[in-house]
Amino acid sequence: MFNIERPHLNYRIITELIEQGSNVLDLGCGNGELLYKLKKEKNVSGRGVDIEERMIMECISKGISVFQGNLDEGLKDYATDSYDYVILNQTLQVTHKPVLVLKEMLRVGRKAIISFPNFGQIKLRFQLLLKGRMPVTKGLPYQWYNTPNIHLCTRKDFVVLCRENDIRILREIDTNKSRRINSFMANLRASEVIFILEKSVRK
């Protein structure tokens, strides 16, 4: 859904973040590549969820356990705190109810890892400012009328959302042009951000 030049950077970062042997739920798992990598390198026990039949078939052919379902229906059938990590990689912006999904992730998982394209990046701001057109980039290649990305936000928007919903940001990793960058003025510089989150008040 979010076309980045080297998706493997994301996978590499997320794989680094997760501890050996964790129990992982990957929402919007696509073809199961991340879970496959996590299984191989971090010995995680994990499962994926995706809405597309084609993706489910790819997962099964990789030996990944997967469930065909719609994230917007929530995770009501998943038990509280049943996963160490719930991952939402490049998927938040396509959900219809991002806040519900986010809250559910933090109910079902002890921690959540979330990545999304930063709409506050200066390149996008310039496109709107100078051309007066909706921004189109390599990472966000769609026109306004055919984009699946219905809930784009800036890094700052997301930080505010977390504050309003008692979600604590444990760690932030910013990237641009498939490279990690430091967090200095990340809202302007990062094309993509990855957050590790947990609930502020642990029950």
Partner: peptide, 21 residues
């Protein structure tokens, strides 16, 4: 089928579920 799959997951079973169109 979904109900069944969630019950399997609840019991810690390893399960894959697909709805073929």
């Amino acid at each position: 089928s979904k109900e069944m799959v969630f019950a399997m997951m609840k019991s810690g079973r390893d399960v894959s579920y697909i709805e073929i169109n």
